Simulated scan of single mutants.
Amino acid sequence: MGLRNTLFATLGLGLALGANVAQAVIFDRNGNKLPDAEVNSSKVNWEILSVEKGRNYNGIGLLEQSSYGICTAFFVDTQGSEQAPAYAVTNGHCYDGSTFPSPQEILINQPSNLIFKLNYFQDGIKRVRPVRVQRIVYATMKGTDITVLELDTSFKQLVKEGFTPLKIEQVPAPVGEPVEILGIPLSGMEPSQSFLHRAVCEVGQSVNLREDVYQWEKSIRNRCSLVGGMSGSPVVSLRSNRVVAIANTGVDDDALSQPQCSLNRPCEVSRDGKVTTLAHENYAQRVSDIPSCFDQKGVFNLNLPSCRLEKP
């Protein structure tokens, strides 16, 4: 999502890091684009979730660095054994909260100072469950925008505590698939409203996307309301209840005066190289290769023969 002072940088999707203005695209209940400035308006097509209404989403939470919220992440269903660590997934541009991987970089087994806060509901703030991120087992912005986080607790322990992991779908969702995006909006939001939200839309066309020096293949258009902080939000099929993508970018109103394909103004790239900015679309990235890299015990292993993620 855009730049936060000079300290934190995050893409238009930027959906990362709470800044002072809304980022990406918000819609009303008729599917019409709203100005970013109306992010706190009741017109926005999303709902804030309560502990009761969001009980199946308590494994989706806020990523923090140095007490600053930066992105959304979600607890992944790996069917982990007794000793297997718990894992969460977010965007590659969220991997440490202060810098991005380079365009061709694939990071593995990196230290982390992030905190993942589960159970992040407006009416349940006293029951928020912080978990330290033990390490970044995989992060990249090459071709896609994903990070896999190893948490400082076990899969079994979080399940025992009542947290619901989300299963990732291993095949792409078709155009028109009804989905919900679940994340924590920060940019431009009143602090009292910066808790887990749910927005509903459909999977749009798959396109190649460019933003600044980054290029992402088979990005998924969508018109679910998104703002900064919602980078890494799971896109969940309403048919299968599985994650089919993660939200990562959109065009900021303030970036429309910038060159096409610059930070905060992602553009679609056609086969013949033509670039087009669509200010009324948000985008999500594919995650279908991630499950192939977990072994039978639920441990992430990039060297598995089955693993389809790109290696360094």
Rank of each mutant, 00 (worst) to 15 (best):
S194Q: 07
S206G: 07
S194A: 15
V200I: 15
S194N: 01
R210K: 15
G204M: 11
L209A: 12
W216H: 14
C201Q: 02
A199C: 13
Q193G: 04
Q193L: 09
W216I: 15
Y214E: 04
N208C: 12
A199M: 04
S192R: 00
M230F: 03
L209R: 10
S219R: 07
F195Q: 00
R198I: 13
N222R: 03
Y214A: 09
S219K: 04
Q205A: 14
Q205L: 12
F195M: 02
Q215H: 06
R210Y: 00
E202M: 13
R210L: 07
Q193H: 09
E211Q: 10
Q193C: 03
R198V: 15
S206M: 08
V207R: 11
L209C: 10
V213N: 13
V213C: 02
Q215Y: 07
E202A: 11
H197A: 04
S194M: 05
E217L: 13
W216Y: 15
R210A: 14
Q193S: 13
G204R: 08
S206L: 09
V203P: 08
L196M: 06
A199R: 06
E211H: 12
Q215G: 14
Y214H: 06
V200K: 14
Q205N: 10
Y214W: 03
S225K: 05
C201R: 00
A199V: 09
H197L: 08
Y214I: 06
E217T: 13
D212L: 11
Q193F: 01
S192M: 01
S194C: 08
V227T: 15
R223V: 09
E202W: 11
R210V: 15
M230S: 08
A199H: 05
S219V: 11
Q205T: 12
E217M: 07
M230H: 08
F195G: 00
S194F: 03
E217V: 14
V203F: 02
S206W: 05
N222I: 10
N208W: 01
E211G: 12
L226R: 08
S194P: 02
Q193V: 00
C201G: 12
W216R: 15
L196G: 09
G204A: 07
K218I: 06
S192I: 00
G204C: 08
G204N: 05
R198Q: 12
S219D: 05
S225E: 04
M230E: 12
S219A: 14
W216G: 11
F195T: 01
R221G: 06
R198C: 10
D212K: 14
E211L: 06
G228H: 06
F195E: 00
C201F: 02
L196K: 02
D212A: 15
L196H: 03
V227I: 15
V227N: 13
M230T: 11
S219I: 02
F195D: 00
C224A: 01
Q205C: 05
S225W: 02
R210H: 03
R221H: 10
V207E: 08
V227W: 01
V227Y: 01
L196F: 03
S206V: 09
N222K: 13
L226G: 08
E211R: 07
F195R: 00
V207Y: 04
Y214V: 07
N222E: 04
K218P: 01
V203D: 08
S192E: 06
L196A: 02
E202Q: 14
V227D: 09
N222C: 04
F195A: 05
N222P: 00
N208I: 04
G204D: 12
S219N: 03
R223A: 13
L226D: 03
V200G: 05
E217C: 04
